[in-house]
Design a protein around this nucleic acid. Sequence first.
RNA 1: GGAGUCGGUUAGGUAAUCGCUGUAUUCAUGUAAUGCAGAGGAAAGUCCGAGCUUCACAGGACAGGGUGCCAGAUAACUUCUGGAAGGCGUGAGCCUAUGGAAAGUGCCACAGAAAAAAUACCGCCUUGAAAGUGCCUAAACGCACUUCUUGAGGUAAGGGUGAAAAGGUGUGGUAAGAGCACACCGCAUCUCUGGCAACAGAGGAUGGCAGGGUAAACCCCACCUGAAGCAAGACCAAGCAAAGCGCUUUGAUUUUUCUACGGAAGAUUCAAAAGUGUUGUUCGCACUGCGCUUGGGUAGGUCGCAAGAAGUAUUUGGUGACAAAUAUUCCAGAUGAAUGAUUGCCCUGCUGAAAUACAUUUUGGCAGACAGAACUCGGCUUAUAACUGACUUCUCAC
RNA 2: CGGGGUGUAGUUCAGCCUGGUAGAACGUUGCCUUCGGGAGGCAAAGGUCGGAGGUUCGAAUCCUCUCACCCCGA
Length: 129
Amino acid sequence: MLSRLTFKRHQRLTTAAEFKAVFEQPYKSIDTYFTLLAIPNHLDYGRLGLAIAKKRVRLATNRNRIKRIVRESFRQHQHQLVGLDFVALARNNTTRASNHLLFNSLIKHWQKLSLQYKNSLSSSSVVIN
RNA sequence: GGAGUCGGUUAGGUAAUCGCUGUAUUCAUGUAAUGCAGAGGAAAGUCCGAGCUUCACAGGACAGGGUGCCAGAUAACUUCUGGAAGGCGUGAGCCUAUGGAAAGUGCCACAGAAAAAAUACCGCCUUGAAAGUGCCUAAACGCACUUCUUGAGGUAAGGGUGAAAAGGUGUGGUAAGAGCACACCGCAUCUCUGGCAACAGAGGAUGGCAGGGUAAACCCCACCUGAAGCAAGACCAAGCAAAGCGCUUUGAUUUUUCUACGGAAGAUUCAAAAGUGUUGUUCGCACUGCGCUUGGGUAGGUCGCAAGAAGUAUUUGGUGACAAAUAUUCCAGAUGAAUGAUUGCCCUGCUGAAAUACAUUUUGGCAGACAGAACUCGGCUUAUAACUGACUUCUCAC
RNA sequence: CGGGGUGUAGUUCAGCCUGGUAGAACGUUGCCUUCGGGAGGCAAAGGUCGGAGGUUCGAAUCCUCUCACCCCGA
């Protein structure tokens, strides 16, 4: 099913309740450009929400650019992001960085968060056993 | 070539791969495939003006707000076009809330005699008194002159100011002076001529001048103006829970208490205004409890939502803004918010190097701005890359 | 998206409506007091009034444009 790299509406967080859930007790990954939050969603695909604050990125053009980059990166790496809900938050430096830098940063975030998720899965299974 | 003024155009292109939103068609009805469409000149600031929607209505008077040379354009405007006047610039050009200060009120710091109707300080002039000096005389009177002295009158020429000082210059005139008179200039009023008008005119007549600035101070005059906004509003679905407090004034009636016997305070009943909405007040209109505090529920979907004061082309009218006619086109509709990412080649600009026929070629590097629709239009303002046209001025060459 | 408000010493605010001198408190610095510090007393410094134009003789104040920040709204 996930052989194609699509990004459809159901793969996005749309309601306030879904966003609130992610902010409750997430796995975090932070660097100079982004703060990423993630929780398990018990689905066989990943979902992404964007929270680019107007306070952090003042111009609408830049906000749109950052959102597109995050979505594009998520689309390309969605195979390793199954079963998680993500929320991406922008930081102060994000506006000044080039597209290339942002892509590299995001790749590291995906790896880190998916690793955390897998570790927690294995540890919980050990406890059950 | 330098400096500058006024416009105009475009908003990098293309290919490959992977995506996003809407819509049409197809089928196996889906997390599908294919086709088509998919940000701007400012989408921005929200500074104006409209459409549209709601508020039982958009009605009157006053208040409040806006605009302010004239004529026109427009659905409308604080916009635009053409013209007038004033100012700035060598010039091309640019700027101007540009009606009224002889309707009234206010303000004009400091300085200055005075900041507005000059009882006008100093000064100047005439003159009375006083004092002094000189002449004369026996002395006084008298005459002449003087004054850190003083009274009365005339005067607005001059006066270290100030942003601003009461028409200017000259001549006459006078005790000194003054539009007091005259000449020229300026000003005001009336008239004539041109212009739809603002206004213009070294046209004519009259007037000695009519009394500073400020109206983006109040104000007067003319014209305009209901309010809020698509989170307006309509519908569907889901859902809960209500509680407490307060509610004026006047008149009359009955009654209780206090009393300095005039009254005062409280309660009952009735009547009248009443309360809310209509920007403020009032009349009018509509509705009938209203206000405050605490608490509870939902924040999902559909419509509004894109064929319009629409775009493009041509013709005609007009100096122009613009209008009319004909033909033709359908051109974004998202909602934690689509319109993108990567790479190659080309294009444009800047810059380095090399070659030479000295303004071309080759090659390398960097850059490609400002910025993202959120109901829709017409403007204004601000941000901003490149190309390009016309004109002005300066320098050099011919 | 729409509506509204605020920008003045280092900080929190007056002054603006009604135009001519920018002021208060806290803080800072210096001196006094104390064995020393704190508290207290005295004195001083510190301002493009967010920015740019306009009106006026003169603008923190009036008008226009602009830049930040804040608040409210199904």
